[in-house]
Amino acid sequence: MSTIDVSVVICVYTEDRWEDILAAVASVRAQTHPALETLLVVDHNPTLLDRLRSEYKETDEVRVLPNAGPRGLSAGRNTGIAASRGEVVAFLDDDAVAERDWLRRFADPYSDPRVLAVGGRAVPVWSSGRRPDWFPEEFDWVVGCSYRGLPPGRVRVRNILGGNASFRRTAFDFVGGFATGIGRDGNKRPMGGEETDLCIRLSRARPDAILLMDDRAVIHHKVPEAREHFGYFRTRTYAEGLSKALVARSVGVDKGLESERRYATRVLPAGVVRGLRDQLLARPGGARRAAAIVAGVLTAAGGYLVGSMRARRAGTTFAVVPIPVDQVERAA
């Protein structure tokens, strides 16, 4: 068994997910490869901060601390990185639970010093009890989960997915951390892309770096009922287009859209064909899945065009500001 110490960071922001947060922490505590520590980083919510500190008395096992940077997921993750002590820092969404060998699957590849990041697979848990028949698996990223088209097994990738991810601590020495201005920042628009930006910057800083995806490192990610509807699907795909425009501006179009080209030209057309075939075979939702794929492409493309024009007009830049440990301690 690997002896690598892993710190787990869970960023939280709302009391509405109280039971989900408790379940996430419990799943970390049940790991076959024990976590060195679990850090709950609270995003500018004093009530939630106090409640979690009452639930988890300050110990080396679970630590509760406020986001020491601006509101948003990137600064919350950077706060966790600065406060953590493990050789590897893993990230788990606050509405997900990890399978018992999750950290073991993450830790094992780090025996190779070239490995700087390992990601895993996120399986959707639908609040309605099952996948809506119109919802294409190719778009499971809309609800924060792994999607059809990702390579199986343990493979090298351009970037890992942020809700089920781990990085060697030294990776942040090379790139500083997650960029603010990309991804979710407390507003209502479901942006993303901050982990893509970080991984691309990491590969540029260390061309010999290995970034892996291992589909045996599994988490089960809750999908709220509100996200099972087409309205959210449309909103999220549009926001993803906006996010990709920001990532492309940060790291360049070639790298920023490298994986997306294969996805758009191979995975999605195959999904449309599959949906139409299912319709011919009288399988539920076939035509609706095909239509959802087309709608998702169009709204994401629209978001990308709008985001690109806005970024050019505004001359948008993105800050990568590591949060010093002493700043975290003062905030705590």
Rank of each mutant, 00 (worst) to 15 (best):
I160E: 01
L49H: 08
G181N: 12
G120P: 06
G307A: 15
A300D: 08
M1D: 13
A165C: 11
R148A: 15
P207L: 10
Y56E: 12
R312N: 13
K255D: 14
A239C: 14
L305S: 15
A248Q: 01
V297C: 14
T47W: 09
R312E: 12
T316I: 02
G162S: 12
V157D: 02
Y56D: 10
R148K: 15
A96C: 13
D326Q: 15
R121E: 12
A295N: 00
P132E: 04
Y263M: 10
G286E: 00
D108Q: 00
G149E: 05
F233E: 00
R85H: 12
I293L: 03
M309K: 13
N164K: 02
T180Y: 05
A24Y: 01
R17T: 11
E228Y: 01
W126M: 10
G193E: 03
G192R: 06
F135I: 14
E258R: 13
D101N: 05
F106E: 11
V251I: 09
E329T: 03
D112G: 02
A165F: 02
V28G: 08
A90P: 07
A205W: 04
R85N: 14
L49K: 03
T299G: 07
L281E: 13
A226D: 09
D108M: 05
V12H: 08
V273M: 05
P136Q: 04
A270I: 03
Q279K: 11
A107I: 03
P46D: 07
T235N: 02
G252R: 12
A292T: 01
T3S: 14
R288V: 04
E61R: 07
P46Y: 06
T47H: 14
G144F: 04
D93S: 11
S128E: 04
E19A: 13
R168L: 09
D108F: 02
F106H: 12
D95M: 06
H33F: 06
L198R: 07
T180A: 11
T170D: 15
K57F: 07
V41S: 10
V62M: 09
I293Q: 00
A311W: 02
V251M: 13
H44T: 04
T317Q: 12
L49Q: 09
I210P: 02
V297H: 07
A300F: 10
I4L: 11
R262E: 15
R274F: 04
G302A: 15
G163C: 08
R168D: 02
A287S: 13
E55H: 10
G296L: 05
G177C: 13
G181I: 09
L73M: 15
R104G: 09
R168G: 03
A270T: 07
N67Y: 09
A209L: 10
R277I: 02
G256S: 06
L150M: 15
A332I: 00
